[in-house]
């Protein structure tokens, strides 16, 4: 077992760093507290465009917290305090002039457990579009398009207007949530362990879907399933105790981890 001392200065080990030009999101020295408890320590990392970045690490290490900092979902938690910057297309989304609601409209999110609204499949996908003012045939087209991209269209096309989203199976529900998130065509899509509540077959379908999304979207995905990170992602971040320990191309992280902690985690010695 490696000593905790190694994490003390919060220095991240980086391989093949992402350049500023490639980055869609640039996190700079991000610190976050829930009340008095610090959950993120001095995180700096760039997420490249049209690539899939995975965040891995033992449970409670701050993966979800980091992810939710990227679209300011953490603002909804009472007592949260954030320091540092998150630049999205060069704009700091924590700038006081920025409206968190506007941020969330441009950044999609998929949650750990499928959480469709108790509405019809159609209304689920249309929700974000309606918030943005879409109506009529354009709305319909985009709903159908999103269902297709989420690989759900074939299964629901004959009933998507009438059937409640809650009536779908777990895997279908999660794809519905993905369709709902991508219907507004967010350049960035955040996913928090999107398959952890699903069976292997449904997981397979979602993973295929995520790989395909790369063409259109930049994806950040949290997972504690390392095979999944290895299968779908281009880059991987390894976190521990609120610190970003190591980041780099997925292949390198999984084959030649530089930090002893990363190696310990990858090889299953803790976590």
């Amino acid at each position: 077992m490696v000593s905790l001392e190694l994490l003390k200065d919060h220095e991240t080990v980086r391989s093949a760093p992402v350049t500023e030009a490639e980055a869609l999101v640039d996190v700079r020295r991000l610190n976050l507290w829930y009340g008095k408890k610090q959950a993120l320590y001095d995180i700096s990392v760039r997420f490249p465009r049209n690539q899939i970045t995975a965040i891995i690490g033992p449970s409670g290490c701050g993966k979800s917290t980091l992810l939710r900092s990227l679209n300011r979902m953490n603002d909804l938690v009472p007592g949260v305090r954030v320091e540092g910057e998150v630049l999205y297309e060069g704009v700091n989304i924590y700038d006081p002039r920025v409206d968190p609601v506007a941020v969330r409209r441009q950044i999609g999110m998929v949650f750990q457990k499928p959480n469709p609204f108790p509405k019809t499949i159609f209304e689920n996908v249309a929700f974000g579009l309606r918030l943005m003012g879409f109506k009529g045939s354009e709305l319909e087209d985009r709903v159908v398009e999103a269902l297709k991209r989420a690989a759900l269209w074939n299964e629901v096309q004959d009933r998507f207007r009438k059937e409640s989203g809650l009536r779908l199976s777990g895997g279908q529900q999660q794809r519905l949530c993905i369709a709902r998130a991508i219907a507004v065509e967010p350049p960035l899509l955040l996913m928090d362990e999107p398959t952890s509540a699903l069976d292997p077959i449904a997981t397979q379908a979602i993973e295929d879907l995520i790989t395909g999304l790369k063409q259109h979207y930049t994806v950040v995905i949290v997972t504690h399933n390392m095979q999944q990170a290895a299968r779908v992602s281009d880059r991987t971040l390894f976190m521990h105790l609120g610190v970003l320990v190591e980041e780099g191309p997925t292949e390198l992280i999984f084959t030649k981890p530089k930090h002893p902690y990363t190696e310990a985690y990858i090889t299953g010695r803790f976590g």
Binding site: L76, R104, R105, F111, F117, K119, L131
Partner: peptide, 25 residues
Amino acid sequence: RSIREAAYALGARPYEVALRVVFPA
């Protein structure tokens, strides 16, 4: 709560979450 979070993540404002999601649900 997860349902509310989904709405917030789509950029809904609190009153939109209340009236369009929670109330109908």
